[in-house]
Amino acid sequence: MRRADRLFQILQYLRGGRLTTAAQLAEKLEVTPRTIYRDVAHLIGSGVPIEGEAGVGYLMRDGYDLPPLMFTQEEIVALVSGARILQSWGGTRMAAAAQEALVKIDAVLPQEARPQVGQVNVHVMDGIAQHGHWRDYLDRFEAASEAKIRLRMGYADEVGQQTNRVVRPLGVWFWGKVWTAVGWCELRDGFRMFRLDRISALEELDRFRPLKGQTLKDFYELGAYRR
């Protein structure tokens, strides 16, 4: 989690004047209490009226709030529609994050704008609910591409032949009905695109360093994804 996101979360937990300890915040945000101490000190230094101290707890009195977010109607439609698409077609963690994002957007919108969120008439049919493993693999492949972690996976080609691959993940693509993962395949010594519904197993290995000729930029320059 980025620090900016963590600071925002701390403010949300402290709203309403509830005494919250650094240990409780650390558990919720999956960081150490020492990190919470530094973050709270930063917020106080920025002028946020947080009271308390380390070892006792912190609270923020009623009356302080973040400036309301201002979106146009078109922007609200875009945000809600995108979140609903991810809830139905994204990974498990993506879907949960999309739902949380909608809650946060609704919480910080001005009172007069909140009804617009529920009035967005863009709806999405759940097309992959029966294929739950897609969602898990989507989350894991996306996270591995961000963290630069090699993956070992079982994969079936279009005729059902099973192979074991070691892949350096580069990202995931959505084609309207199916997700594909792109990576440098060590078995084939080249770029490959893998349909997530054909992956039978996925295991994290070690970290890798991007090599010249094996990066996402190189993949785009080849134009293989357009074929």
Rank of each mutant, 00 (worst) to 15 (best):
Q111L: 09
A98H: 02
Q99A: 15
H123N: 13
V122K: 05
D126R: 11
N121T: 12
N121H: 11
V108D: 07
V117G: 04
A97R: 13
Q119R: 15
G132C: 08
V122W: 05
V108A: 06
A107T: 08
A113M: 09
V108G: 00
A129P: 00
A95K: 00
A95Y: 00
H123D: 14
A98V: 13
N121W: 04
V108F: 08
M125H: 15
I105R: 09
M125S: 14
Q130W: 01
Q119S: 14
V120N: 10
V103Y: 02
H131R: 08
L109E: 04
V103P: 00
I105S: 06
I128S: 08
L109W: 12
V103I: 14
R114K: 12
V108E: 12
D106W: 02
H123M: 06
M125P: 01
N121F: 08
Q116I: 14
L109A: 04
K104S: 11
A107R: 14
A101M: 02
L102Q: 05
Q119K: 10
H123A: 06
P115I: 06
V124M: 03
G118F: 12
G132F: 08
A107S: 15
V124Q: 03
D126M: 14
L102M: 11
I128L: 11
Q111K: 13
A107C: 04
D106C: 06
Q111W: 05
L109Y: 03
G132V: 03
A97M: 03
A95V: 01
L109M: 10
R114C: 02
V117M: 06
V124H: 03
